[in-house]
Design a protein around this nucleic acid. Structure first.
Length: 805
DNA sequence: AGCACGCCGACT
DNA sequence: GTCGGCGTGCTC
């Protein structure tokens, strides 16, 4: 028996199948999708079995046997193995990196080298001899060498070379499923009681344990039984045959002890019913369709999701629900747990590695049939999928920004095609890509125009900040905004303020000569952080102190420009003495759980104002919010990215939706320097369609998606000349090998031309149909493979990029 | 990627 | 002579 193995080595050079023979004792249990340990270039590595066959073309002399089989039940199903192959092709990723992305972190292999002395200990240097007298071996060589003295390093290296010290590389795959002993009483009540009388005298501990087990009728771990009797008492009872002992895998439940109110299906409005019946029709027909539901905020999309899932579960199938990481709040989880109870697994980044593994295991063991999770939950190892739902489908977080650069939306569609089941994409502000597909009939468009409670959409006012300046208001708050904040404060209503920039000031500048401090490692100006009086680089973390005099002209006219959330908070306190503010940005939500904490506090009315960056735009639904203020609506609009207008419209619409969701009417005030830009005016009108048409026109003119496909190539190197040279060559090669109609732009320097001392260049490919593209890109990667390995050249290819930086 | 192998200059 | 630096090539 031969297995096809993909080895866990991140290199283009070994990104192919290697064959291994399977020892007799593993043949029975071996199957595709299992992880194995195999010898590879003189060391053990982890590998994924992706196929099994009877014979190999590889000469028998070269074939090595599998060292160890890690999984008995394969963690990857045949469907996922096939999916991995297509993702690898489409995203030009390493096969192994796609396979790894499908599994929870806890299942990744760890590699370490241990070092122990050979036979002739006496020949070792004095210092080493001393070391090995104390401990028999060095358990983690890489860690040891980091902390060792210079002499130790040299003499150890010598000893290894001479064979006096032996290096043993090891792979360990943590089996996160901890087996625990559980105990239960096995005799009838009457029998147990007979014994208890006797035990009470001789062994009171044993009697207590038996008593407890008798009354609870359930299995318990040794730890849970600790208060009644020790392990010794338990073992004694087992010996007497009064209780049984079993091994069991006990899963942690991150939501253990949390009570979820059960909820029933709500009655749907006619519009919701119509949408749901379109979906259930497809579920019944057992065919694949992708639906795009455009429903304004508060139109009841979630209830439709819940009822569609209910339908799928009744058919004995499974459901995946994807939610943007940031809106995976307890409230969101609660809605699903309330409806489907213990049948729901939750996968998101706030869980520990072990907890994630446990949730994943519940899916693999078929203990649940609904998964709610962020991007990677799209790989949930279900085998009988009935629906995949992607909420807020326009969110950028569905695209993974590291390799493998997959988009959860397209992975979801691939999987749904395989299972002949529907995909639901939901959003108040669909991505242009999806909406265009819906218009062309590739997706089915479903629309919900009205809010469930029939509330009107909040009134939106635009404030032209240029006018404010002209009339002498140089503060960051317009007169209108100040007045309205005063008004809400008086009425005891709550306010949400959005500013898409953290920190204090965006940069500092010398007024005399215009000097702006830049990061020495990146081509970007430094941001002023007030808390520690420093200038910081948001890209590499570089820090320096604020100069009191200009390093260029020695003037003392150094001033702060731009505004961050920190500064707004301070200014608000200056303007309104008794206003209480909760600030939410990366700096205040870094700690685990703080995001939730701040939101709950605001929900309970502990502050008048919630001030934050875009993270506040999602998921908050509090009845007392009647004013939403956007301080600088254009902050994203002028970024060098063709999606800038789309993102601006989406963010503003999102945040505007926070106001007046309940019986109080809401109001939105948007401050901007570009009040005539359609991405802002159409927010005022709540007119997605009009925005869509205008933006589509711009995309058509610019030759951007959804009219053209894009592929971005990012090249970086510490040497500027190298980058330029390589990018130029690549561009020339592509021009010569791709068709006439395909346009290649570049090489050009990236919008941030240098990060962490690496120069960055890029090359953009625009095309409509280009059958030779993937082949050409593969060829490119191969021809630069050795340069990437030898020098610090880096090449990133992003097919369908989301971020242009 | 990480490891062996082999070639070459430097030092005991 | 021997040590150790680095370029080259291979991994079932």
């Amino acid at each position: 028996m031969i297995v096809n193995v993909i080895v866990d080595v991140a290199s283009q050079a070994v990104d192919r199948i290697f064959d291994y023979s399977v020892p007799e004792e593993m043949q029975e249990t071996m199957s595709a999708g299992c992880r194995v340990h195999v010898p590879f270039a003189n060391r053990p590595v982890q590998g994924f079995v992706i196929g099994i066959k009877e014979s190999s073309e590889v000469p028998a002399a070269k074939l090595k046997p599998v060292q160890e089989q890690i999984d008995l039940t394969p963690p990857l199903t045949p469907e996922l193995l096939q999916l991995a192959e297509s993702i690898k092709e489409e995203t030009l990723s390493l096969h192994v990196s796609v396979l790894k992305a499908m599994l929870p972190q806890a299942m990744r292999a760890k590699y370490k080298k241990s070092v122990f002395p050979g036979a002739a200990v006496a020949k070792l240097d004095q210092n080493l001899q001393k070391h090995f007298a104390e401990s028999k071996f060095i358990e983690n060589w890489d860690e040891w060498i980091k902390e060792a003295s210079e002499e130790d390093k040299i003499s150890a290296a010598k000893a290894i070379r001479k064979g006096l010290l032996i290096v043993e590389p090891k792979v360990t795959t943590k089996d996160a499923a901890k087996k625990q002993l559980v105990y239960a009483s096995i005799l009838s009540d009457a029998d147990a009681e007979n014994h208890i009388g006797e035990l009470n005298r001789k062994a009171p501990k044993q009697a207590a344990v038996l008593n407890f087990l008798q009354s609870s009728k359930e299995e318990h771990t040794a730890k849970q039984l600790e208060p009644y009797g020790s392990k010794a008492a338990l073992e004694a009872l087992v010996k007497k045959g009064l209780i049984s002992k079993n091994e069991a895998v006990l899963n942690r439940d991150p939501y253990e002890g949390r009570h979820f109110e059960t909820s029933e299906s709500l009655t749907l409005l006619p519009a919701q019913k119509e949408v749901l019946s379109d979906i259930t029709r497809v579920i019944d027909k057992k065919i694949h369709r992708t639906f795009l539901i455009r429903g304004v905020t508060g139109s009841g999309k979630t209830e439709i999701y819940l009822q569609a899932i209910d339908k799928v579960l009744r058919n004995g199938k499974e459901a995946i629900v994807l939610v943007p990481e940031i809106s995976l709040t307890p409230q969101m989880v609660e809605r699903f747990k309330a409806r489907f109870g213990a049948r729901v697994a939750v996968l998101h980044s706030a869980l520990s590695k072990g907890e994630k593994y446990d949730e994943w295991k519940k899916i693999r063991d078929k203990k649940v049939d609904v998964v709610v999770g962020a991007r990677s939950a799209v790989f949930a190892p279900f085998e009988n999928l009935g629906i995949i739902i992607i909420d807020e489908e326009h969110e950028a977080s569905y695209k993974q920004e590291e390799s493998p650069r997959y988009h959860a939306r397209s992975v979801a569609i691939s999987r749904a095609e395989h299972y002949n089941c529907p995909v639901l994409l939901g959003s108040a502000t669909p991505s242009l890509d999806s909406y265009a597909r819906a218009q062309r009939g590739v997706y089915d468009l479903l629309t919900l125009e009205n809010r469930v409670n029939d509330n009107a959409m909040p009134a939106v006012t635009l404030v032209d900040m240029r006018e404010e300046l002209k009339s002498g208001n140089r503060s960051m708050f317009s007169d209108d905004l100040i007045e309205r904040i005063k008004d809400r404060k008086q009425k005891g209503e709550q306010i949400v303020l959005l500013l898409n920039r953290r920190g204090y000031s965006t940069f500092i500048m010398c007024r005399e000569c215009g000097y702006v401090p830049q990061c020495p490692h990146c081509d970007i100006s430094l941001t002023y952080h007030r808390t520690n009086q420093s200038l910081q680089c948001h890209y590499c973390g570089h820090r320096e102190t604020v100069p009191t005099r200009c390093p260029e002209c020695d003037s003392d006219q150094i001033r702060f420009f731009g505004t961050g959330t920190q500064k707004v908070e301070e200014e608000l306190h200056k303007t309104f003495e008794d206003l209480s503010i909760i600030r939410m940005d990366v700096d205040t939500t870094r700690r685990k759980g703080s995001h939730e904490k701040l939101l709950t506090a605001f929900g309970k009315g502990e502050a008048d104002v919630l001030l934050g960056t875009q993270m506040i735009a999602k998921g908050l639904d509090f009845p007392n919010i009647t004013l939403v203020g956007v301080l600088a609506a254009d902050s994203m609009l002028h970024l060098p990215d063709f999606r800038a207008a789309e993102r601006t419209f989406q963010l503003l619409t999102q945040v505007a939706g926070r106001a007046g969701r309940h019986d109080k009417t809401g109001e939105v005030l948007i401050q901007t320097y570009s009040p005539e830009h359609y991405s802002i005016t159409e927010v005022k009108e709540h007119n997605f369609l009009s925005f869509y048409e205008k933006e589509m026109y711009m995309r058509k003119m610019g030759g951007y998606p959804p009219f053209y496909f894009l592929t971005m190539i990012h090249v970086s190197h510490t040497d500027l000349q190298q980058v330029v040279q390589v990018t130029e060559k690549m561009s020339a090669y592509l021009k010569s090998s791709l068709s006439e109609s395909t346009k290649i732009f570049g090489p050009v320097a990236s919008p941030i031309p240098r990060i962490k001392d690496r120069y960055r260049y890029q090359c953009m490919i625009k095309y409509k149909i280009e059958p030779k593209l993937m082949e050409a890109l593969q060829e490119l990667m191969h021809s630069y493979q050795s340069d990437i390995a030898r020098t610090d050249l880096q090449i990133i290819i992003d097919t369908n990029p989301f971020m242009m930086m």
